[in-house]
Write a protein that binds this DNA or RNA. Structure first.
Length: 276
DNA sequence: CTTGTGTCCTGTAGGC
DNA sequence: TGCCTACAGGACACAA
């Protein structure tokens, strides 16, 4: 669920309430989701008493910069959500709860429990956050462009869709936005990345940027019966602008029919008439 | 290095 | 009704 636009929307929603607030206590209901250090022991006590200095984002990761050079890292996995709640509120599938000064709490709910939280000191971060540091550029970052993409695609035989999902290539891109970007670029997801022409790479580069920016503009994608919520409980609106995702056998804008193929265990949607 | 597959989880939808 | 399978916004370990 949460890809770059969703995580960015969550970040923006949390900043006004949490920056400057102090963690009073932490309740871990699903220990497995705490990744560091040793089985997460000491996680709660290391957080308690710390103040949030800023909230940053890298790809799909949220980084809470805390007092005393502490870093709280949250990844929402497939089904995680972060909602600001009052004292008594217990969202469904709540796994970890951060109580803050002022009586508010940040509730991390996650049906499938594939999300994770990590605490580390800033100086340990290169080691602990290994995968975070080796991620590539985000489509909305300076330096991301046709040249960057072409360099990554050169001589690669893997389907272009797989590379878009590779965080070392397109940081923050997930299944929904990968499908939508390929649609906007007119490129089939099954094409070998290295076979794209220059104009195709150019279009794909632009499409990635625009689709991610639109996703942010519309506060992310909340499919029906979906877990993704804004921190205030609201829903995203980008689902209204999806051209192909989740539309198998549905009508494309061109009048053709949207097709579904499975690639590496993920669904890819495309219009055979618009994408080549 | 590259590429594809299976696995981690829980919940739900659809077929029979 | 119930039982079974397939699948779901992600990432990672592993095999070839």
């Amino acid at each position: 669920m949460p890809e770059l636009p969703e995580v960015e929307t969550i970040r923006r929603g949390l900043v006004p309430s949490l920056v400057g607030a102090r963690v009073t206590s932490v309740l871990v209901k699903r220990r497995r989701m705490v990744k560091h250090p040793e089985l997460g022991r000491g996680f709660e006590s290391k957080l308690a008493g710390r103040k949030v200095r800023s909230i940053m984002r890298r790809g799909k990761y949220l980084l809470f910069v805390l007092d005393g050079s502490g870093l709280l890292v949250i990844h929402l996995g497939m089904s995680g959500s972060l909602v600001l709640v009052g004292r008594g509120e217990r969202p469904k599938h709540e796994r970890i709860r951060f109580e803050f000064s002022g009586g508010r709490a940040l509730s991390f709910a996650d049906v499938r429990t594939l999300g994770k939280v990590i605490f580390c000191e800033k100086r340990e971060s290169p080691l602990v956050l290994h995968s975070v540091w080796r991620m590539g550029l985000e489509p909305i970052q300076r330096g991301f462009g046709p040249r960057y993409l072409a360099d990554r695609f050169r001589d690669r035989k893997a389907p272009v869709k797989s590379l878009l999902l590779d965080q070392r290539v397109c940081c923050g891109v997930g299944n929904i936005y990968a499908n939508e970007a390929l649609y906007r670029a007119g490129v089939r997801p099954t094409r070998a990345a290295g076979s794209l022409s220059e104009p195709e790479v150019e279009r794909l580069s632009k499409a990635l940027r625009s689709v991610i920016n639109d996703g942010i503009k519309w506060c992310g994608t909340t499919l029906e019966d979906d877990g993704y919520r804004l921190p205030d409980g609201g829903r995203g609106k980008f689902q209204r602008h999806l051209a192909v995702y989740d539309r198998a056998e549905g009508k494309c804008r061109c009048g053709g029919t949207v097709k579904l193929v499975r690639q590496a265990g993920r669904s890819s949607y495309y219009c055979p008439a618009c994408q080549h």
